[in-house]
Design a protein around this nucleic acid. Structure first.
Length: 480
RNA sequence: CGGGGCGUAGCGCAGCCCGGUAGCGCGCUUGGUUUGGGACCAAGAAGUCGUCAGUUCAAGUCUGACCGCCCCGACCA
């Protein structure tokens, strides 16, 4: 950062831009332990809005919240072979408690399938107990090598849904239902367009029969897996004896699912919408939707302007999340820049001229400079603000969608795929052979993001790598 | 774990090559003037120079070990 006032431009160093904007906007800060972060009040407010949006959808589809313990017996992890293999390298293990070495080490949960499976086995007896639909809001720890604020930290905050069903069909239906809820949240609340699809075997969750994801394109054209939903088949049911008696009095294993979305979505919101000025929050999730900035010169003006500003704040607060920035130690110009950095969708300026004329100035974060400003009468202001926020929300999604679509390519051959994924996404047929997938990863750093459930009207084709017949195409991209 | 960078005031850095007891910008405090796109003047407060050991009359500076953080890669939500 050469100019202390300005962020590193995204085009110059996207990674530096990201780190600077996260810290300077006060979303998060580095904690004393490597790879851990503190989510500051502003970032927490954003996360809480994400939580509310998701929680409402979970409740609407019949889920209940519960809380399971942070510590899990080591042996639980080992009950499911794939699961332990996948998570063993990144476990934090507690070996001592109360000053004594523990008989059995406890792991700090990297995810909760195992404890929840254990409890489900206790709770489920009959088909009448099914389905069981529980969600947990909490934190988990995964000992990652390389960390980045929000995108990958040792500890992160998320929700994990865990359900048990009587049949495969029901479990699969649930898996896809929750995937679609994530897509709906991302698209309509976070204004992030996503592609939904099935993960390849190499990319799927350790212990799942099938994993599905929503994938979003960031401002540097990398992909971000922003939410996952897994059909766990009977893997955990068998490992933990989650069984029920069916109508015929026969003992059956349950079919379980799990699905999660984390604070990583905040990284997505930052990297999809942000620009060189800073953050650009979608109105539906923004901690503050409107910031009011009063402007005055003389003491007389100060009192009348502040009075008018406070009136507007009260009026707007009935419908919107609004903050009045009446600080006197910084100038209005400084505030403009700061709140733009912090991503507030709409700024309301009110000065002596406005008070006299019964007007206010509204400035849109999504349209820079004078072009985004308009003078509006304070009568009916609330209505005007509501309309503008809707417009901004729609505009952010439209801009992100246009950017994404402009950077998804359909390479004709492997050579072209290599070129394409260096700076964008590829749609390409894949025969399903892990060797072909690995070859792409080795040679381009791009991975298969997912195989869309909706393959469009494309019929079968031939694998972009080996040329053999391929039933499906996948998205390929570099990913976080 | 491999490669790179960095640890000096709250933040960003200079000083280190060539040892002599610490400085700049921003921020902070106080007072005054300012305020429609990152204001200005004046006076202040603030540092065990990452840790430990060594060399030396003397170490931020030289030597060694260690610790930590960030970035790039391999692994991952």
């Amino acid at each position: 950062m050469t100019d202390e006032k300005k962020l590193t431009p995204r085009a110059q160093d996207f990674s530096a831009w990201y780190n600077e904007v996260v810290v300077r906007a006060e979303l998060a800060d580095y904690a004393p332990v490597r790879g851990c972060m503190v989510v500051r009040p502003y970032g927490t407010a954003l996360w809480e809005n994400c939580q509310q949006s998701l929680d409402r959808r979970f409740k609407e589809t019949g889920h209940q919240n519960a809380l399971f313990p942070l510590l899990i017996p080591m042996s639980f992890l080992q009950k499911e072979a794939q699961h332990v293999e996948g998570f063993a390298p990144e476990l934090a293990v507690v070996t001592h408690g109360g000053g004594k070495e523990l008989e059995e080490p406890l792991v700090v949960r990297p995810t909760s399938e195992t404890v929840i499976g254990y409890m489900y086995a206790k709770w489920i007896r009959s088909y009448r107990d099914l389905p069981i639909l529980i969600n947990q809001w909490g934190n988990v720890v995964r000992w990652e090598m390389r960390t980045r604020l929000f995108l990958r930290t040792l500890e992160f905050y998320w929700q994990e849904g865990h359900t048990a069903h009587a049949t495969y069909e029901e479990a699969q239906e649930e898996t896809i239902r929750m995937l679609n809820i994530y897509a709906d949240f991302a698209t309509n609340d976070a204004a992030i367009p996503v592609v939904t699809g099935r993960k390849s075997d190499a990319e799927k969750f350790a212990g799942a029969d099938a994993s599905y994801s929503i994938e979003a394109m960031m401002g540097n054209k990398w992909a971000l897996q922003a939410g996952t939903s897994h059909n766990l088949g009977q893997n955990f049911a068998k490992a933990f004896n989650i069984q029920y008696l069916d109508r015929n009095n026969e003992l059956q294993y349950c079919w379980t699912t799990s699905w999660g979305l984390s604070t990583r979505i905040i990284g997505g919101i930052i990297m999809v919408h942000g620009d060189d000025q800073g953050l650009k929050f979608p109105p539906k999730l923004a901690p503050y939707q409107v910031v009011i900035i009063p402007i005055w010169r003389t003491e007389d003006q100060k009192s009348t302007v502040l009075e008018a500003a406070e009136r507007l704040r009260r009026e707007l607060a009935e419908r919107f999340r609004v903050i009045l920035d009446a600080r006197e130690e910084v100038t209005p110009g400084w505030k403009f820049n700061e709140w733009e950095l912090r991503g507030v969708p709409l700024r309301l300026e009110i000065g002596p001229r406005d008070v006299e004329q019964g007007t206010a100035v509204l400035a849109r974060r999504d349209i820079p400079g004078k072009a985004g400003k308009s003078v509006v009468p304070v009568a009916g202001l609330s209505h005007a603000v509501g309309e503008l926020l809707d417009l901004i929300q729609a505009n952010l999604l439209a801009a992100a969608t246009a950017f994404r679509d402009a950077n998804i390519h359909e390479p004709k051959d492997y050579q072209e795929l290599k070129e394409v994924v260096a700076d964008g996404w590829a749609k390409a047929y894949w025969c399903g052979d892990p060797a072909c997938e690995a070859k792409i990863k080795d040679e381009t750093k791009a991975t298969s993001r997912n195989i869309p459930l909706d393959q469009g009207d494309a019929g079968p084709g031939s694998c972009i790598v080996c040329g053999r017949p391929a039933k499906e195409w996948a998205y390929w991209a570099r990913a976080y």
